[in-house]
């Protein structure tokens, strides 16, 4: 009896350890959405989200405070980005949200610059100010066009 008890105990321990590691992989590393509902959910609209992806981090002053939940097209053919943020975040209503790139080759993320108003954004509300992704191709195109124009113009 003692041996069967201990074998059952070992199997139980093994199954627990295996399930715990799978859970760790799925939730922590895999980033299966564990934040869930109930946090602060805000909406922003952009003309161009560039390479922004869901699960991209949202940061304030470089500190990650949330992640992008979904990116979709709204009725005015703009990109609607919904993000989950820490629920205790008090963001003034005139805060600006911008799409930034980490380094030259890095991934794109959302950077929030808090505003100065007293009134704060609550869940479901929208950012009034947003800055689009900086598109290198577009910048180069503009530069080349301008250079062409200025040399052609007398």
């Amino acid at each position: 009896m003692a041996s069967t008890r201990s074998s059952e105990f070992a199997v139980g321990l093994f199954v627990m350890a295996g399930l715990a590691s799978i859970a760790y992989l799925s939730l922590q590393v895999g980033g299966l959405n564990y934040r869930g509902e109930g946090g602060l959910q805000l909406v922003a609209h952009f003309d161009d989200v560039g390479g922004l992806t869901t699960r991209a981090p949202v940061s304030i002053a470089g500190v990650t405070v949330g992640q992008v939940r979904s990116i979709a097209l709204d009725e005015y053919m703009r990109a609607q980005v919904i993000m989950d943020l820490d629920s205790d975040l008090a963001l003034p209503v005139d805060s600006v949200v911008a799409i930034r790139t980490a380094g030259i080759l890095g991934d794109q993320f959302l950077a929030v610059e808090p505003g100065a108003e007293e009134v704060v954004l609550t869940s479901g509300e929208e950012f009034s100010f947003s800055e689009d992704a900086l598109s290198l191709e577009r910048l180069i195109g503009k530069f080349v066009n301008n250079a062409g124009l200025s040399s052609d113009d007398p």
């Binding site: 350890a17 295996g18 399930l19 715990a20 760790y24």
Partner: peptide, 10 residues
């Protein structure tokens, strides 16, 4: 097998 996989990776 999946349990051992989880352990291995962690």
């Amino acid at each position: 097998m999946p349990l051992l996989y989880g352990l291995f990776v962690v």
